[in-house]
Design a protein around this nucleic acid. Structure first.
Lengths: 187, 187
DNA sequence: ATGTTTGTGTACCGATCTGTTAACTTTCGA
DNA sequence: TCGAAAGTTAACAGATCGGTACACAAACAT
């Protein structure tokens, strides 16, 4: 399979899983929507789980790449980038196809702690948290890790509520809370 | 069906859906685990969706009843009850079977805005938010609704991260953030 | 030109999905 | 005690699930 075709298969699968959920999306639908026969799919992915893991890896790279770049565009200081977090999230919430965080949904459907899908989802969150902790340290926070954990909590909560209520409003409330917490953590 | 038996069916179904997920739990398993024949189940619930809605209603009553009572036990002032929120959540996170918020998972699996399951999940969150807003108003917050929305974001984020990482730690971080936000909102 | 790899469509596998039909038991009030 | 209501088991629909077998067609390097 040409690398392009493989990448396209993963990306289209991502759209399907993101819109319909994982259990609710059958491999027949994946084959029909991607235009790749089920036989070929199973020649490159030993199971549906392996395809999901590839989808999550793409999502991880895409999302972190987008978010970190957007933060750099919005601010050029570490503190400024932390403060811009919920501005970027607000832009995401307003995108037409926004349906919440793919990793939250993945770990909700595959919630066993030792499940590879759950572990990969947790890994994504860990990478985000480490990035925020690095920014917090550069910004001079007294407890960078603690601030990063607080911002992560705000971020996940805002995503969940925005998705459930189909409203971008939680970005504004999260932003206000984040600014206050950042202000307290960095003097 | 005796009311007791019906209630038991719903409660056992709740456990199954909570542990395994909604799509991943078949009605055959529900019948086997509850001891109620599938024929009888479908005599009292027209579809799996109706059973899920009954389960969510029970969960809503149980959870709000438990949380609000626990807050009253932990503090006797409105502000104290808001401050005790993450102490109560921490207790929940440490319970053996904790697997996250049932409504977040329900709305993740049934994410269409007009889906009754999604609407019922959003209704549960709205009731919680209104309760917090009432407490915030009694506590003298300048913008009770805004504080309630911020606390909701913290709450959902802490639940999601505690479930994904199988750790009660987010309760402590959420508590610290909540105390700071409450202190800023109520002078 | 030829043989190998790679992908294709199609039909199929056994299992499971939600939901139903039918005949038989239990329960329980009149 | 009798008869309706409600529950039971068991088999069965029709569809879909994840995954595979097989025969065939295109692409490719040699």
């Amino acid at each position: 399979m040409r690398p392009n075709k493989r990448a396209e298969l993963i990306r289209k699968s991502l759209d399907l899983f993101y819109r319909n959920g994982f259990h609710a999306t059958g491999m027949d639908l994946v084959a029909a929507e991607t235009g790749v026969s089920k036989t070929s799919i199973y020649k490159h992915f030993r199971s549906k789980e392996e395809l999901i893991l590839a989808v999550l890896q793409l999502r991880d790279e895409d999302f972190r790449g987008w978010l970190f770049q957007r933060l750099e565009e919005l601010a050029d200081t570490p503190r400024g980038q932390l403060e811009a977090l919920f501005d970027a999230l607000g832009e995401w919430f307003e995108q037409p196809g926004f349906q919440g965080c793919m990793f939250i949904k993945a770990s909700a459907e595959y919630q066993a702690g030792e499940d590879p899908i759950n572990m990969q989802s947790a890994g994504h969150k860990r990478l985000l948290q480490e990035h925020f902790a690095g920014l917090a340290a550069k910004a001079g926070a007294q407890e960078p890790a603690a601030l990063a954990r607080q911002l992560m909590i705000l971020k996940e909560g805002a995503i969940v509520l925005a998705a459930m209520n189909h409203s971008p409003a939680p970005a504004g409330d999260g932003r206000q809370a984040a600014l206050a917490l950042i202000d307290l953590a960095i003097r």
